[in-house]
Nucleic acid binder design. Structure first.
Lengths: 148, 148
DNA sequence: ATAATTTAAGACAAAAAAGTCTTAAATATA
DNA sequence: TATATTTAAGACTTTTTTGTCTTAAATTAT
């Protein structure tokens, strides 16, 4: 009974927004992110490794190492993060899970779901980390631990 | 890496639409539904038990027993099925999984996601099994096994 | 009554997701 | 060079989801 996305994906999105909001041009340690967001350090490490492999983040080892966005926050869209962590199926698949479902072979919910899927993809594909990082500070604070 | 809903929920939706489309006023055996939809009989039994407990279906044991919709298909909305099988959080929760997120305490994605959540709830809350069952037969056939 | 059919309930098993830990590799600094 | 710091990789454990099976209960028909 989790949310619409997996924990992995929720954590990845939260971490990405957090890092973007720091507006720091050095590496940020995963440990500090994990503590700020109240996420298991070990698990977050795995999640961010995936984002690094997907070329969304950069990592650097050693003292003063950590992770950073691989590009300006204005060039990272949320759908990249979701696809890296959740897979394409979550954004492109049939609601009923039918692999054959598509334009010429629509399931009973196909058309109705298409509209929603479009909206989701539109939103995630057009929203950048920059936009989220530039929001009202109240909204940003709500992803960090002290808010909970 | 599954779809937007769990397997349980996908199966429940497919079975409900299938049963509605049969337009049969007797009980339909779970076994026949499982075969038609190519879903494990055992697992489907569990899923439909949940829908029966949620008062969406009726069941009856013994020869000629099986399951049926507990109400006219025109009075069963998709959101009921999703809530019964997937939980309220999937339709009402924060995209980032933050329990505190809400109107006065919005996460960075809150407003954007609200719009989409609204659409999803609107669609699922207004679409009935009847409407899906009355669609173009091609769409209906695509939930059954022979289509795969 | 007896046997056959069908769902209910609960135990059980397998697979996937979530989370933890250890060791290795890279890097910086003393 | 030696030590400390930090991510990478992979083993491992726990929890949840998914799927299977067995037995019980309800019901029908013989």
């Amino acid at each position: 009974m989790s949310g619409i996305f997996s924990n992995k994906c929720e954590y990845g999105l939260r971490a990405a927004v957090y890092i973007a909001a720091l507006k720091k041009d050095q590496f940020v340690s995963i440990r500090s992110v994990a503590e700020a967001l109240d996420i298991s350090f070990y698990f977050l490490t795995k999640v961010l490794q995936t984002l690094t492999q997907a070329n969304i983040m950069n990592s650097y080892r050693g003292p003063n190492g950590g992770i950073s966005l691989s590009r300006p926050a204005s060039e990272i869209h949320l759908n990249e993060i979701v696809i890296a962590l959740e897979g394409r199926r979550s954004l492109e698949g049939c609601v009923l899970g039918l692999p054959e479902c598509g334009g010429e072979n629509p399931c009973p919910l196909h058309n109705r779901w298409m509209d929603i899927r479009e909206e989701i993809n539109q939103m995630l594909g057009s929203t950048t980390l920059q936009e989220l990082a530039d929001q009202n500070p109240v909204k940003l604070e709500n992803i960090i631990k002290s808010a909970g």
